[in-house]
Nucleic acid binder design. Structure first.
Lengths: 258, 258
DNA sequence: CTAATAGTGTCTATGAGACAGTATATA
DNA sequence: TATATACTGTCTCATAGACACTATTAG
């Protein structure tokens, strides 16, 4: 291997290196307020944040104490930031198999008072009941779900305000332009459940009109009926269930109507 | 400032830190082969790569020598990776004001034999004539434009094969789902020039049919006529010029037709 | 029965896409 | 004149979206 010779001469310390590499996660969930039995849910998109404690693990004063922050932590040498996000999310919420996606890197000099620390940011989608289960377990740390409106009113640590703005932009466009909505839904869902998820980020009349959407869902190539399967969880009348298939869609803005 | 107390106790060296933080750039251009005067161009999407030299600046054997690689380099402590990309691109091509976008981070352990090196990857869009000007200046380094087909046949350094695959996916969907196409075009362009750009990444009949597209362009809310302005660069008949406005578009996959 | 959600019948307007024709320039 | 690209007139078919209606169940 010719790289061996080259490595003999390479000094890993000739450059100034970062002081840390962290993985942060914007954990989104949708809370379904059941307005009653036999009704479709009212859904709200929420973000999970953690309140930084006054003292750290060694009982020293903590950086950015008492501000709200995204969960996350340092990446180990043996893993990618993506794997770190998955690990930390499992430690935090004891949920595996969450939908996780990288959406940005935050490396502005001075963003972290501790030094040159690069944050690799992801968003995660976790079903609501997985989060509420976790909150019961760990009563020490302050964990809370914030609606997008509530987020504007609280003090955020580091540059997490910027990261959160980007995360919201990203999940909004992903919900509308990709099939991630499935991560918020059970495998088989009704048209009104999918509709409720989409309405958390848009008010497009084609999606908001229930008759239009009930018709439209049957023509979408990436969604199919679950033949013969129905549920009564959203109405007294048994409702057809649907599921996503594996199709990927890229819909050009240059085609079809506006 | 309460953070001051906290910082006294913070030891920046308690964690193993990365050995380097680099910014890499996938430089895309579209080559227009003029098939004749008064004709619309034939366009091909190409990626600029640099052949790594046998010896480095200190005359030692170079890592991944003689393989093709994305341009890039180490990020300075005083800048973001995005700024580093802009700086390196200017050093490399002496072009300012290029369209530049982050699209991924590459941090798999072992991806670089020199150590734990994190690559922050961007794609850039540079008009062809800016690249050809540059090639004339710097005859030392081997720089070449590769069509997407040619890329499959060459030896790539590090994990740049993976990075390039992601870059191509990203620019393809951005060309169709956002208005980045404008970065490949002059400020005022004809419908056939925009069409040629889009056809480098799609064969959607609604875009490929020239009558359909000539009509469609007038209805797109993010494109407007430049009143009274025409050009003869693509045909003998003077042709209407168009320009992008500042509108941002998110087109849901759940609306309109398929 | 009422009330509530799911779903369909049907109409209208709009637009996609095809085809053929017209417009405007060069040589 | 021929030729090449730009553009429009017009037709057909599909469908978005609106409105009104029907279907099915719980209580």
């Amino acid at each position: 291997m010719t790289n061996k010779d080259a490595l003999k001469h390479y000094d890993v310390n000739q450059y100034r290196t970062p002081d840390g590499y962290t993985s942060d996660i914007a954990v989104f969930t949708i809370t379904s307020e059941k307005t009653g039995v036999y009704k479709p849910p009212e859904m709200t998109l929420k973000l999970m944040l953690i309140k930084r404690s006054v003292k750290d693990a060694e009982d020293n004063p903590n950086i950015e104490a008492e501000k709200w922050a995204l969960p996350g932590g340092f990446v180990e040498t043996s893993e990618t930031a993506f794997e770190a996000a998955r690990r930390e999310l499992e430690e935090e919420t004891s949920v595996k198999d969450v939908h996780l996606k990288h959406f940005g890197v935050y490396d502005r000099p001075g963003r972290d008072p501790r030094g040159w620390i690069i944050s690799n940011a992801h968003y995660a989608i976790v079903p609501e009941h997985d989060l509420t289960a976790r909150k019961a377990n760990d009563d020490a740390a302050e964990v809370k779900l914030f609606s997008l409106d509530e987020l504007k009113t609280i003090a955020l640590a580091f540059d997490h305000d910027t990261i959160i703005i980007d995360a919201i932009k990203m999940i909004t466009s992903d919900l509308l332009q990709t099939t991630v909505a499935k991560a918020f839904l059970p495998k088989a869902f009704t048209y009104s459940e999918l509709q409720a998820v989409l309405l958390t980020v848009t008010n497009d009349p084609a999606i908001a009109s229930h008759q239009s959407f009930a018709r439209k869902i049957k023509t979408l190539p990436f969604i199919q009926e679950v033949k013969g399967q129905t549920t009564s969880r959203t109405s007294k009348k048994p409702t057809q269930l649907y599921q996503f298939n594996d199709m990927e869609v890229v819909k050009p803005i240059y085609t079809a109507r506006y």
